[in-house]
């Protein structure tokens, strides 16, 4: 099984542990990840001010991906959302497609309908399948508990990203976590947004938004918050100290990527999964599988 890995901007620079664990897990599960080299930005940062340009940029990536006929699998939820929305839009709007293709022509590219975009985790769930994953697992993470964080653009807007999970009552990450024998914690603030989207506009606001979940989880005994988006990671791990200071409280919520959890169950060592790069580490977990 093959898929086209879309790294985007943040992951290959800031979230190498995510990338490492994702590549390891995919390989172990029999998914050959090809890199979409020269991919660059998905267009998300431009959407607020210039949708037309954002669409062309997304279309560029989609056009590049389309040539191989493989599913484009980003690691970042924002990239997933932007690219999937763009594909959806271009598939259903011939005029927009013509406009975009005029812009892409000088690059020697053209968007052709039918490019599939799936978050890598969704690809694992749907294309590899839970049963196949389960078969490959070699270790049980029993005794550990993870709070799944779905984030926003992994499931929403459901008009574009629907079919995998109910955004009002998501279970796919929990199921994935439970495959490993670990407990998937149900918690009140599960559906809260990380606030990453407003970090640029209002840092205090973003911090307060992320703080809700961090405070909720700090009060619980969970091994770690498990997520699948570098943006969410910025808020929950990168900003955790700042948030704690602003809220005048102690916060020490370990944050991991779902792929790292899966990697451990597949038998990889924490080191191979980049746990060294986790800033707030689930120490017990790392120790247990050293």
């Amino acid at each position: 099984m093959e898929a086209l890995l879309y790294l985007g901007c943040t992951v290959p620079v800031r979230n190498l542990n995510y990338e490492l664990s994702a590549r390891k897990v995919a390989a172990a599960l029999g998914v050959k990840l090809r890199d979409l080299t020269e991919a660059g930005c998905c267009g998300f940062p431009l959407k607020a001010t210039d949708q037309a340009a954002a669409l062309v940029i997304a279309a560029r990536a989609l056009a590049q991906a389309g040539e191989g006929g493989l599913t484009l699998t980003p690691l970042c939820s924002a990239c997933t959302g932007t690219l999937a929305e763009a594909a959806h839009h271009l598939d259903h709007d011939a005029a927009a497609r013509r406009r975009v293709n005029r812009e892409l022509a000088p690059l020697g590219l053209a968007y052709r309908p039918g490019v599939r975009v799936k978050h890598l985790v969704r690809f694992l769930l749907e294309d590899v399948g839970e049963a196949a994953i389960k078969k490959k697992l070699t270790r049980s993470l029993e005794g550990f508990s993870f709070a799944p964080h779905y984030g926003c653009h992994y499931l929403k807007p459901s008009q574009v990203l629907g079919g995998l999970d109910d955004p009002e009552d998501p279970t796919s990450l929990a199921r994935l976590i439970e495959l490993t024998g670990a407990e998937a914690v149900a918690y009140d603030s599960m559906k809260e947004c990380c606030g990453g989207g407003v970090l640029g506009a209002d840092e205090r606001l973003a911090g307060r938004m992320a703080g809700t979940k961090l405070v909720d989880l700090a009060a619980r005994e969970v091994t770690a918050l498990a997520l699948l988006c570098p943006f969410c990671n910025v808020m929950y791990e990168g900003q955790q100290k700042t948030i704690a200071k602003k809220l005048a409280t102690e916060l020490k919520v370990p944050v991991v990527y779902v792929t790292q959890v899966l990697g451990l169950a597949l038998g990889f060592k924490p080191k191979e999964l980049g746990f060294k790069l986790n800033r707030i580490k689930p120490k017990d977990l790392v120790k247990a599988f050293k």
Partner: peptide, 8 residues
């Protein structure tokens, strides 16, 4: 400019 684009 404060929308977090969470789509809720």
């Amino acid at each position: 400019w404060l929308c977090s684009t969470c789509y809720s």
